[in-house]
Design a protein around this nucleic acid. Structure first.
Lengths: 324, 324
DNA sequence: GTGAAAGCGCTAACAG
DNA sequence: CTGTTAGCGCTTTCAC
């Protein structure tokens, strides 16, 4: 491994000059600097981050804790975080908790210990556990917290209702997700305030965010006499579409179905799903930005920063005018 | 931050005893050890990996380079790698090259510099660039290399052909993927040797591994007079199904379509796709194992190790007997 | 503008 | 079985 010593020896300068030339160029004479950079490049010198961090008190990496990396939602957030980190010259440690809530506290602790800060992209309520980060800044995704990035669920609900109302729907069911979900709570609140604006909303109980969860909701959706259903996410929508079709109803003719998240699944299924989404990668990117901002401030405590990214509506085939 | 010194002071021992108690317990008296672990736990001591690694010459982390983390295929591999790394007490640095081939060499270099080894999950041919890892072991996924993990594509092709032949298909089209893909090359080779075993295979040119790629292949698939088509991956299959349907043909009645990868997309689309797959997470897990094995050996060069994971066939609705 | 030297937190000889 | 000491590669005062 090529170290600063090697570069220094070849360049005929001290290791401090090499260090400065590489990390604080303005403190070194232009000529010396250029020579050093050339030699470093030539020798294939790669700074050892561990060593640099050890001395500087930073690790040069951020942590990302997700419940399931194979879930397209979190995969997109992770991709954004990776891009954001790279833009800031940071590395990303990715940890997958495999949906194990108890494990998450431990993972957060050890992740925080070896990074400069952590992005917590778990939809659970971990407020009480945040001290586990040991003073390191924590940015939460779609959750409450002093440093938070999330989707504007209220805005998303408005878009959905607006779209369905314009089509002529007056009675709409909401197939909700897990009780612990912040997003679900936000949406339920938004749906509740929407009541009385010309549409009736029937909020259905908590369902598992899976195909089976959607299928399980079919009976109550049909019983509700709603002409349209908004689902917790696209996968639930797929399950619901299947199950109502199996009962002889057609989508969207007999029931309009509107998903959430607008994952790449939405345009691929039949009928292609109308879905409320947001730029998930941007969430990851912004989360890193928030972290870097706090890091730059140097203060462990700082002002509250909450970012709400706009929701979008992709209209496809699964929503249409109600019959008669 | 709590350091070994703090623990040592409270425990009334030297820092080396603390270090040993935590990383080589058998070298410390049971009583002392227990007291130290208790105190460490109590103080919330978290070893600083950067420091430990600096001294030991290891970083305690492996790198994972993927072309697109939002692609379910690589997301699954990443998830497996994260699980495998955690099982070995290692961290995972994830880097997304965003499909930029030129960037990959640089990314590989810097990733290798700050990890103990790298998993290269890019389907491109990077042999020439592997020296960029600077002597660190590199495990490639679905590629040629001294340390490699991949899916048994030949076996997968056999399963697919066997299934289609049993259904009665005698003329089968293969909608291939990018020319740089190792998997595609493996499959083409396997398909070529299968010719003459009672089925005719029409290998169609390189197509983009997207919905549009599948749609673009529709005309030549139909022109080939094949009664079944095997596609490069599930997304291509979806595109093909759409396009042939748009031309008035039915799937599977007029054309059977068989995908590859068996991603979670396969069971969700209509008709649900018959697909050849493999345990993608296992790929990530095994890649880490290979890396750890080489790391433990200590030698920078070592015996060639190639792992081929078995392919599986999930039969669903998109394949059926050909008409008449 | 550059060099010498200290030290980040930890592990690994080497003594005792 | 435990303590002392050196030093991993780097950044950062402090002198010059």
């Amino acid at each position: 491994m090529v170290t600063v010593r090697d570069v220094a020896r070849v360049a005929g300068v001290s290791i401090s000059t090499v260090s400065r030339a590489l990390s604080a160029p303005e403190k070194v004479a232009a000529q010396t600097r250029d020579r050093i950079t050339a030699i470093a490049d030539d020798l294939g010198y790669q700074p050892n981050r561990a060593a640099a961090g050890l001395r500087a008190g930073r690790t040069g990496a951020v942590g990302l804790l997700v419940p399931d990396l194979a879930n397209p939602y979190f995969a997109a957030v992770a991709k954004g975080a990776a891009a954001g980190a790279r833009a800031h010259g940071l590395g990303v440690f990715v940890v997958d908790s495999e949906e194990d809530l108890r494990l998450e506290v431990d993972l957060l602790r050890s992740l925080a210990a070896q990074t400069d800060g952590v992005i917590l992209a778990s939809p659970r309520a971990l407020d009480a556990d945040r001290p586990a980060a040991g003073g390191k800044p924590v940015v939460v995704v779609n959750q409450e917290g002093p440093l938070a990035v999330g989707v504007d669920n209220a805005g998303g609900v408005s878009l959905a209702l607006e779209h369905l109302r314009a089509l002529g729907h007056r009675r709409i069911a909401y197939v909700g997700g897990p009780a612990v979900s912040w997003s679900d709570a936000q949406r339920r609140a938004a749906l509740a305030t929407a009541a009385g604006t010309g549409v009736e909303v029937v909020a259905l109980g908590a369902h598992s965010p899976t195909v089976d969860g959607g299928a399980a909701a079919a009976a109550s959706v049909i019983a509700s006499h709603a002409t349209a259903a908004i689902t917790f996410n696209d996968v639930v929508a797929v399950g619901l579409v299947r199950a109502v079709r199996a009962r002889g109803l057609r989508v969207p003719e007999d029931l309009s179905v509107l998903g959430f998240d607008d994952t790449f699944l939405a345009p691929l299924v039949t009928p292609a799903l109308t879905s409320v989404g947001a730029d998930l990668r941007e969430i990851g990117r912004r989360a890193v930005d928030l972290l870097v901002g706090r890091l730059a401030a140097g203060t462990t405590e700082g002002p509250t920063r909450r970012l709400l990214l706009p929701a979008t509506l992709a209209v496809r085939e699964s929503t249409a005018r109600p019959r008669a």
